[in-house]
Design a protein around this nucleic acid. Structure first.
Lengths: 260, 260
DNA sequence: TGCTAAATCTCGAAC
DNA sequence: GTTCGAGGTTTAGCA
């Protein structure tokens, strides 16, 4: 990492251009204006900001407040740097959709660049995918006596009309179609499940139940679900995460036993 | 802005703690691990990252690739810094929802902090609000002969059952309810407009038309709209932006005339 | 490529 | 406070 405090325009330009060639992450802090044209367009007058440029072509402009960047370009953008009239100018463009971001520094407080190595993979828990795995492992999380079909059979039943998250049979032998949501169920999810239940009903003489599984549901969605004769079952993704962790520790000794 | 290359843990700790007290933006670059627990939970092993801490309590952890931060906390979080066993440890927490982010630096490449001032306001164009203003200015953007009611009358008609973007009358004197979307219309928008049209029909003997106004529409949403007897009119937010700019240059002389 | 659904979505306004 | 809808949403998964 090389850093220069209060760099001149030419020092900063050298650092940026060399950084671009060498695949370094570049940090610039200073007083600048920012213009964006693309899916929308924006203009931001002079102020102090932090600019991060990454070697994959993404660029971020952060103001001193707020979690979100005020302007940005996604990975794959093409960056150029130049100077004119005592200013350092950055320009990032991409095609499809065409977008252009320009940053013009009047004054620089810091310029830094360095090659950063990060090979680690993020482990994320309590996602919707984890809910699916937990319910598959313990269908009783949804209701007692529920049995789930395996993925292949589910896909056979799916057809073209959208798709449900899980399919199985309830304690009374009715077909049960599950729609899992990590967050509150809204009307869109209800409509989606209804469509799938209907397409299944058209292809089987059996009774088909639709069950929404989520930590909560909006009032409107609940009314709609009742009108469509769909059930709602409360299930917290955190509980699913816990169930999976417990299942893991139970499974580990077995695996160890099977190894030799 | 004060910057230290390859700072010791105590140097970095001083810089962070003083930065927190003084309301500075703090930048740290180094090899660290990151743990998050809250709405979900995640773990990220050792790697090189850029951490930005802002005086409003937001914190961002950026890997050398990708537009999005790998971990973050929103504004309002409470940050503390400490050192143990040669590591610099940052901890950010917030309540409601409870969330906690921990960053532990094994090695630091750069630490910097400075008070950044940014008073400018972002000017964003081609938003949905701009579409609304453009259609209000020139209803013929939607269809010839369309006339729009003013906002108050619209609110009277709205009632509790959701709300439409604009209400007026078409060339044949039917009530026309507009739903504007900056982006592609999806099924949710169709359902929303249908609900509003229905609630309006229940309160008037007149014919009521629902019109979706957006740059495009999904196939499913179009089918649903046809089933509900709702129209779709293509309108690009960019064109709205252009219309408003043209209207501005026409209006300016008038305003100047009215000033004295 | 286009479309759909998920996100630690964030953010802001209405209720 | 909660709920609801918009966003330059972004991003990942499929057809």
């Amino acid at each position: 990492m090389r850093a220069v405090e209060r760099p001149s325009v030419s020092e900063a330009l050298n650092l940026v251009q060399e950084g671009l060639r060498q695949g370094r992450v570049v940090l610039l802090v200073g007083r600048c204006s920012v213009d964006y044209v693309g899916r929308a367009s924006s203009r931001l007058g002079l102020g102090d900001r932090v600019v991060i440029y990454k070697p994959d072509g993404s660029i971020l402009v952060h103001r001193p407040e707020g979690y979100e960047p005020v302007n940005w370009m996604p990975a794959g953008s093409y960056l150029t740097a130049s100077s004119s009239e005592g200013r350092l100018n950055l320009r990032a463009v991409r095609r499809r959709p065409f977008e252009e971001l320009k940053v013009s520094f009047m004054e620089l407080y810091l310029a830094a660049a360095g090659r950063l190595i990060d090979e680690e993979e993020l482990m994320l828990h309590a996602s919707e995918e984890e809910m699916r795995r937990a319910v598959r492992l313990k269908p009783c999380l949804v209701e007692p006596g529920l049995k789930l079909h395996d993925e292949e059979r589910h896909l056979q039943l799916a057809g073209g009309e959208g798709s449900a998250d899980l399919v199985g049979e309830d304690a009374e032998g009715n077909l049960a179609v599950l729609e899992l949501k990590r967050r509150r169920v809204d009307e869109e999810a209800v409509v989606q499940l209804k469509r799938y239940v209907d397409s299944l009903k058209a292809r089987t003489p059996r009774r088909v139940r639709g069950i929404l599984v989520a930590p909560s549901i909006t009032r409107r969605a609940l009314r709609l679900a009742q009108a469509f004769n769909l059930s709602f079952r409360r299930l917290d993704p955190k509980e699913c995460s816990r169930v999976l962790r417990e299942a893991e520790v139970e499974a580990k000794p077995l695996e160890a036993y099977e190894q030799p």
